[in-house]
Design a protein around this nucleic acid. Structure first.
Length: 616
RNA sequence: GGAGCCUUAGCUCAAUUGGUUAGAGCGCCGCCCUGUCACGGCGGAGGUUGCGGGUUCGAGCCCCGUAGGCUCCGCCA
């Protein structure tokens, strides 16, 4: 036996997307398990991998040997190799073995067309058991629903073809990204992970400083300031596949640490960023999914997106548009509608086609959802047996009914839902209902559509009633649209729009960015609007304000959420399925049991003391 | 911080209205089996029904609490 325990050269030089011979000779094997064909018959090969399945006939024993690339059948025959066959009887699922043997044609009629290696099998001279496996925590050949169990044995779960495929796909996407941006002249530059806490935005993960007791680094929520400073530094075109950290509650599409394709460029306008990102996504989808996506992407202003779809990330794979009914009900006798309009609000409706048979439970859920998002109730019309079943109908004139029928294209079997409120509330409520109904009706279930679009002209500032102050919608360095800068002077903050844009795919925000402020004066105006004092500006952003006075070029960029993009590319419902080692719902790593207790001494070194002892 | 759904064998699930000893498939263990590829056959082990309490003659099933998981709202510039 010539096994060299401890060598790891077997993996060097392998491409994830394109299995081929390693640059250096492999020690453990001569071929991978999806490689051998009839042309190899007669040659002696060495294979290494996992026992995928054993079929033991008492005499002859079959092993499906599996490695990353595929399966090869190994046949042990007692009359040819009694010793190896004897050993083969003891093999179990996921034992790791190496076999040296001859490639042979399968007996006529026993070829397996389901395997690419199904024409051949390997007759081993030697079987080396490299490592035996315990009884498996769950089977690898089906999808276990117990995610808890999967996450606590993630290293094992990763052997399932499903996850392996996702990780391989992710590699292709990041490689396509790097290749594309490199061709476009972008430099990949790393920025610090030990960074500075800022009050804006999400809650920071903090790292106590040992050498400066009582002070803390923060893990970056995004490399935002660094990439802008790289622009001041004359880099002109930067990108990074950057880890970002936000200490907020998790969701199916949110993890405390996640990855962004972070991009920034100097001397650019939104159109430059749009072209770049469209080209990059086209390259990504060409490489990963082998599809050509149409570019340029359609554009929608934030106001139009809200008005038509009730969302700043509209899913346009189905219609169900929000229809404005202000004209129809301008002089309505129905108080709820007139009241909203008289107060300067909106009356809008959606037509859920062929959903009149909505169940009581579904209707209750929709009503609860509407109220939760600010509606006072949920007015509706069901069209059944040629009649409008609705408590509202008695308030409508014939003209109003005719206008509704025409504007909403009402037909037998439809369900029409109304919202009458402040414009933004009415839009948001109907937008939420629209999405939930699309789930009820399974409107996007097997859709292959890739609907990309840009949402532009976001509001610059939003008023936070709870804190009684204005906050930046994007971040405080976002450039106002040139024509809206006077609104900052006049205090009409709510009307100011930003040079900010999101790229949306199938109703999921996969990226967002903006053109930045590069002048110190404009930045000061912005901070003034945000109510950040001169002193706080210096403490928190002194370095970046100083940088802006040393010849900062006009610049802007975007950050793409790689995990969400991968989720869509792989057709997953959760970003956990496209990350190697994700955390659960509560931010725990069930495999390594982090976060964990630390030694008292570590705390002492950092000058920290725990306030409360937890019950243990 | 809040809401909903879920928790039965290692895994996936079942268990009539609350009714005898909680079952099946896969996996595991043992024996048999020389051309399978979801190999097959026979036998076996494996359960505090998440945990605690309550109602009841009787609880996997009903009620209360609690833990854990997932999803959503808040939160996420």
């Amino acid at each position: 036996m010539f096994c060299l325990a401890g060598t790891s050269r077997g993996c060097v030089g392998r491409s994830g997307s394109n299995p081929r011979k390693a640059a250096t000779a492999e020690v453990y094997r001569t071929h991978h398990c999806a490689e051998l064909r009839t042309k190899d018959i007669g040659s002696t090969v060495t294979l290494a991998g996992w026992v995928h399945v054993r079929r033991d006939h008492g005499g002859v024993v079959f092993i499906d040997l599996r490695d990353r690339e595929g399966l090869t059948q190994v046949v042990f025959r007692p009359e040819e190799n009694a010793g190896a066959t004897e050993q083969a009887h003891t093999l179990r699922h996921e034992d790791v073995v190496q076999i040296i043997g001859k490639v042979a044609a399968r007996l006529p009629g026993t070829e397996n067309p389901k395997l690419v290696t199904g024409e051949i099998e390997v007759l081993p001279d030697t079987l080396t058991i490299l490592n035996r496996a315990d009884v498996l925590p769950f089977p690898l050949d089906s999808d276990p629903s117990n995610e808890d169990l999967r996450l606590s044995h993630r290293y094992f779960d990763l052997r399932r073809p499903h996850l392996a495929r996702n990780l391989r796909m992710r590699h292709r996407v990041t490689k396509a990204t790097r290749d594309f941006l490199d061709e476009q002249g972008f430099l990949e530059i790393e920025t610090p992970i030990l960074s500075k806490s800022t009050p804006e935005g999400a809650r920071d993960f903090l790292v106590p400083s040992r050498q400066t007791p009582g002070k803390f680094y923060a893990l970056p929520q995004a490399p935002q300031q660094y990439k802008q400073l790289l622009m001041v530094g004359g880099i002109e075109k930067y990108f990074q596949i950057a880890k970002c950290f936000r200490d907020e509650d998790l969701r199916a599409d949110r993890q405390p640490e996640f990855t962004q394709i972070d991009i920034e460029a100097s001397f650019v306008e939104p159109a430059d960023i749009f072209r770049l990102v469209e080209g990059m996504l086209a390259a990504i989808f060409r490489n990963a999914r082998e599809v050509e996506i149409p570019t340029p992407f359609p554009r929608l202003t934030w106001h139009a997106a809200m008005d038509q779809f009730g969302s700043d990330k509209p899913d346009r794979r189905f219609a169900m548009p929000l229809v404005d009914l202000a004209d129809t009900f301008a002089s309505s006798s129905f108080k709820m509608f007139r009241g909203a309009l008289d107060a300067g609000g909106a009356v809008k409706a959606i037509n859920a086609k062929q959903f009149a048979l909505v169940t009581t439970g579904q209707m209750e859920e929709l009503t609860t959802m509407a109220k939760l998002h600010g509606a006072k109730g949920l007015a509706f019309i069901k069209v059944e047996n040629g009649k409008w079943q609705s408590p509202l109908v008695k308030f409508f004139t014939e003209e109003e009914k005719a206008a509704l029928t025409s504007k909403l294209h009402i037909e037998e079997g439809d369900l029409v839902l109304f919202a009458a409120d402040k414009w933004e509330t009415a839009c948001e409520v109907l937008g939420r209902l629209r999405l939930r109904i699309s789930e009820f009706q399974k409107l996007t279930e097997n859709s292959q559509t890739l609907d990309f679009l840009w949402v532009t002209d976001f509001p610059l500032l939003a008023f936070d009633a709870a804190e009684n102050k204005w906050n930046a919608v994007h971040h405080p360095f976002t450039r106002p649209k040139a024509e809206d800068v006077p609104l900052l002077d006049s205090g009409d903050f709510g009307k100011a729009r930003a040079e900010a844009y999101d790229v949306v795919l199938n109703g999921v925000e996969i990226g967002g960015g903006s053109i930045r402020i590069h002048e110190q004066e404009l930045q000061a105006k912005m901070f003034a609007a945000l109510g950040v004092s001169e002193e706080d500006q210096q403490t928190m952003f002194g370095h970046i304000l100083r940088a802006f006075r040393l010849g900062a070029p006009p610049h802007g960029g975007i950050a793409m959420g790689l995990d969400r993009l991968m989720m869509l590319i792989c057709g997953e419902q959760s970003i956990r399925e496209v990350m190697a080692f994700p955390k659960n719902n509560r931010g725990l790593d069930l495999m390594s049991q982090s976060p964990s207790d630390v030694d008292q001494r570590q705390l002492r070194d950092l000058g920290l003391q725990l306030k409360e002892k937890r019950n243990e």
